[in-house]
Design a protein around this nucleic acid. Structure first.
Lengths: 205, 205
DNA sequence: CACTAAAGCGGAGGCGCCTCCGTTTATCTA
DNA sequence: TAGATAAACGGAGGCGCCTCCGCTTTAGTG
């Protein structure tokens, strides 16, 4: 009878009010994410959480308070990286001609994917567990790509008869290619090839 | 390739020529599988391996020698159960009219699946890692089902215009239904319903 | 049998996971 | 500035994973 707050009420209101963290807590949290990003990149998602806490200069308890499970931490790191990738689209767009921006972004996208190949299984579990994460992130990516494609098409530097989802599919094909030694080089060539295809007939619309 | 001893074949073939174990080793191995089957059924695939070894009366080292990873043990247990399920098809067929054999087998299939719902994620990983296991086992299941269906159709106790894969699909639908409290009862009713549908129009062709 | 090599055993030890709770600290009020 | 208090910290402790290697048992051989 002492119980006042049901579990449902608790869960319903997390998106609305992320309640501000205390300064030290925020600092520790940021530091953990930073270190975790490096650790996951270097050693995969099985990197030791105790080691991450140690390198971040906090106790293991602090890590677990901020990220109750390994998956929580992975999600935050992963989301941060995808957001950085999307942000890069804007940056490239404002510093390069539209077709170059598109090409460079795709190159970067492919490079990024390359570092994540080993994580495929973990990410699939993450997405199954919480498919909102997946749709959110993949939505951002395709939005970023669409903007680049449309800008280049509008500018006339690539053809106008393709849309972003075609391009995303083409990139997806690169991703699912076998994991050979020269994977990265080949991907680079494929992106260039794709760009040539896009440039072909530019302005004809 | 005429080569029969590929690297993959090495692990997968224990039925063919897995060099005979020493008597004590075989005893321990059997005991481990036995205990593991119970433990996995009761506590899921995350059951403690040390506890399994303890209950089997062997050291943890022995368990790991026989089953280098948790997945190996899971696979053996899982395979054993599926084989038992398939063997039951023959048994039922020789002791009951064909349609009753089919119905009872489907009931048993569904019950079996019910106990495995929590394992879905683990099994998916297992199947991804070693898809030969999946195709082998699902092949056996559909073979067993096909024999039951065809026998009943030949006997005239169910209609003749359905094939086994339809039935398997219908059962699959039951499997993917939401995991409610009365899941088992409802599945039972659905199997009966399916049987009625199969009996309807029996002997007409 | 007795002997021996090979096969098998098993548990200590090192590491990582995660929880729990006594201690510390940032922030708020007076 | 001092005091109060909720928030945050952190690491000890218990458990499970897995490896490693010295000891034991089995299955052959003479």
């Amino acid at each position: 009878m002492d119980d006042q707050q049901t579990a449902t009420a608790q869960g319903a209101r997390e998106a609305a009010a992320p309640k501000p963290l205390r300064a030290d807590a925020q600092r520790n949290r940021d530091r953990l994410v930073e270190v975790a990003a490096t650790a996951f990149a270097e050693q995969g998602v099985d990197a030791s959480l105790e080691e991450i806490a140690r390198q971040a200069g906090v106790g293991i308890g602090t890590l677990y308070r901020h990220f109750p499970t390994r998956e929580h931490l992975v999600e935050v790191v992963y989301r941060r990286e995808v957001e950085a990738l999307c942000a890069a689209a804007d940056d490239l767009a404002s510093h390069h001609p539209a077709d170059m921006a598109l090409e460079q972004w795709m190159q970067r996208f492919v490079d990024y994917i390359a570092t994540k190949r080993g994580l495929a299984a973990s990410l699939r579990i993450l997405f199954n567990t919480n498919s909102a994460v997946f749709s959110d992130l993949s939505g951002r990516v395709s939005l970023a790509l669409r903007q680049l494609v449309e800008a280049a098409a509008a500018e006339g530097s690539i053809r106008g008869d393709v849309d972003a989802s075609d391009v995303l599919h083409a990139l997806g094909g690169i991703y699912s290619a076998p994991d050979t030694k020269d994977w990265r080089d080949r991907s680079r060539r494929l992106v260039k090839l794709l760009m040539d295809g896009l440039r072909f007939g530019a302005g004809k619309m």
